Simulated assay, not measured.
Amino acid sequence: MSRRLTVQSDVYSFGIVLLELITGRKAIDSTRPQGQQSLVEWARPFIDHRKFAEIADPRLQDQYPMRGLYQAVAVACMCIQEQASARPLIQNVVAALSRLTND
């Protein structure tokens, strides 16, 4: 938002990439209807209401561990906090993802 590249903006960008992987959607997709063009804008209501399965890439056909999905979404949510100061350090993101792969 500040148009400056910072460690916090890198963490935000990583969160977007992680959301893209989880959902199978692009960060910005102008071919989608209004309100669904921004991945964060589209996903946030599902995340806020803990409807994580509804944002999972439908091409996965529900063939994933639900706990892993929840953990991946939680990591993405930490990264895309609006307030940069609320975002985790990248080391904490890596640690969270490492625990995810070890479960």
Rank of each mutant, 00 (worst) to 15 (best):
residue 11 V to A: 06
residue 48 D to Q: 11
residue 73 V to F: 06
residue 63 Q to P: 15
residue 18 L to R: 04
residue 68 G to R: 13
residue 82 E to R: 02
residue 96 A to I: 09
residue 74 A to F: 15
residue 62 D to M: 11
residue 61 Q to G: 12
residue 7 V to C: 12
residue 36 Q to C: 04
residue 56 A to Y: 03
residue 38 S to K: 01
residue 22 I to T: 10
residue 73 V to G: 05
residue 65 P to Q: 10
residue 6 T to L: 07
residue 56 A to M: 03
residue 67 R to A: 09
residue 52 F to W: 13
residue 52 F to H: 11
residue 22 I to N: 08
residue 57 D to F: 11
residue 63 Q to C: 14
residue 89 L to A: 15
residue 18 L to K: 12
residue 33 P to E: 04
residue 34 Q to S: 15
residue 51 K to A: 15
residue 73 V to K: 02
residue 43 A to M: 04
residue 63 Q to W: 11
residue 77 C to Y: 13
residue 21 L to N: 07
residue 46 F to T: 06
residue 99 R to K: 14
residue 22 I to C: 01
residue 96 A to L: 08
residue 11 V to F: 08
residue 76 A to L: 00
residue 72 A to T: 03
residue 41 E to Q: 08
residue 8 Q to V: 13
residue 9 S to Y: 04
residue 20 E to P: 00
residue 9 S to H: 07
residue 14 F to A: 03
residue 4 R to E: 11
residue 52 F to P: 02
residue 102 N to D: 13
residue 88 P to R: 04
residue 23 T to R: 05
residue 22 I to V: 07
residue 21 L to K: 11
residue 11 V to T: 07
residue 55 I to N: 02
residue 39 L to Y: 03
residue 64 Y to N: 03
residue 83 Q to L: 13
residue 95 A to P: 10
residue 12 Y to D: 01
residue 90 I to K: 01
residue 89 L to D: 14
residue 54 E to N: 13
residue 50 R to W: 14
residue 87 R to C: 01
residue 13 S to Y: 04
residue 43 A to N: 05
residue 70 Y to Q: 09
residue 3 R to I: 15
residue 16 I to F: 08
residue 71 Q to L: 02
residue 101 T to F: 13
residue 25 R to V: 00
residue 90 I to E: 04
residue 62 D to P: 07
residue 15 G to C: 01
residue 84 A to T: 02
residue 70 Y to G: 12
residue 76 A to N: 05
residue 37 Q to C: 07
residue 86 A to H: 14
residue 60 L to S: 11
residue 38 S to T: 08
